[in-house]
Amino acid sequence: MDWKLDKDRPIVPQICEQMSVRIAKGDFAPDEKLMSVREVAVGAGINPNTVQKAFEELERQGMIYSVRGSGWYVGADFTAAKRAVEDLIFFKTDQYFKAMEALGYDLEATKNYIGRWKA
């Protein structure tokens, strides 16, 4: 797993976001066993406590669950993850429009521009 972590934002929310994207995209099957906290920590180069906090937050949001003595598992359904990704999309879009406004394009002009956009 590749993790792209920004240095000026708290780590826990970033882990949660990236995990929810992966779950929503279908990178994991329902009830699939996740990598251990330690493996994620080593892979991302971060502190296991941080990963633990992130997993506990994901559990709180209903995306994953833990089995005592066994580890962490992806939830049976992905609704929580999809909802989190939607929140993320809203946030990024909002930021985009704000950024465009700072460049002088209001909402209409930006939508117009996107309409003509060819990737």
Binding site: K7, D8, R9, P10, I11, V12, T50
Partner: peptide, 15 residues
């Protein structure tokens, strides 16, 4: 904690 610092200051610890 690192996250407290990043949350409160909006910066990395280094910054």
């Amino acid at each position: 904690t690192v996250d407290e610092i990043r949350q409160e200051s909006g910066k990395s610890v280094d910054a």
